[in-house]
């Protein structure tokens, strides 16, 4: 942490090498956030680069009393919300999204790996169905473990708004899982029908 403060301080004075250290330290969390928000690896990579460019040009506004990770993720969140706002209106189906670089290949995999893959697909599908304002709080809560207070500060809103968004997001996710489960059950019973005849 002391090392990080030193990098931030040097970067604020224009030291690019120190800023490179910050990029190395935070590229994974920023990319993860962008990826979960935008659902596309190329867009996530672009958003990550843009986040660091914005951070560098706004370093003078960074308050050292605030965690650097929260500050950089706040910039990334706002950028992703802007991108989704711009994207609004043009519908992007799940099928239209390019294949995922992190996904396991098509060769037969052990059962555990297969289940993991299924879970990742389910997570992706659920997140893609949430409105951006709900999606961002879910990501900040589940992947980064931020408190209501921290999220409110990062997203420049009130704690009650965060509480409400998280509650609505969870309700929506519960509903989506229920629908998905019911669809699965009806599909299984349909598939089982010809065999029993």
């Amino acid at each position: 942490m002391v090392e990080e403060e030193r990098w931030v301080s040097l970067a604020q004075k224009g030291d690019k090498e120190a800023f490179c250290q910050l990029i190395r330290a935070y590229q994974a969390p920023v990319y993860n956030l962008a990826y979960r928000m935008l659902g596309d690896p190329d867009e996530a990579e672009d958003a990550t680069q843009e986040t660091f460019l914005r951070a560098f040009s706004r370093l003078h506004t960074y308050d050292p009393g605030y965690k650097f990770s929260s500050w950089i993720l706040s910039i990334a969140s706002h950028y992703c919300l802007d991108q989704l706002r711009k994207r609004k209106g043009r519908f992007v189906s799940l099928e239209g999204i390019k294949s995922w670089r992190w996904m396991p290949d098509r060769r037969p995999q052990p059962e555990e790996r297969f289940l993991q893959h299924e879970e990742q697909v389910a997570v992706r599908r659920i997140l893609s169905k949430l409105p951006p304002q709900y999606r961002v709080v879910v990501i900040l809560r589940y992947w980064y473990g931020y408190s209501y207070e921290e999220m409110a500060r990062m997203l420049e809103t009130s704690q009650s708004a965060i509480k409400s968004r998280l509650h609505r997001a969870r309700k929506m996710m519960a509903k989506l899982l229920q629908v998905s489960e019911e669809t699965q059950v009806s599909k299984e019973s349909r598939d089982a029908l010809p065999a029993s005849l």
Binding site: Q27, T48, R101, M173
Partner: peptide, 28 residues
Amino acid sequence: MMLAADQLLQGAERVSPPRDLVPLVMAR
């Protein structure tokens, strides 16, 4: 269902960028 969604998200993995982004950011 809320518990199920919670567990699903708790177990979700983090993804990392496919390559080092430092040279790309610096070039931009």
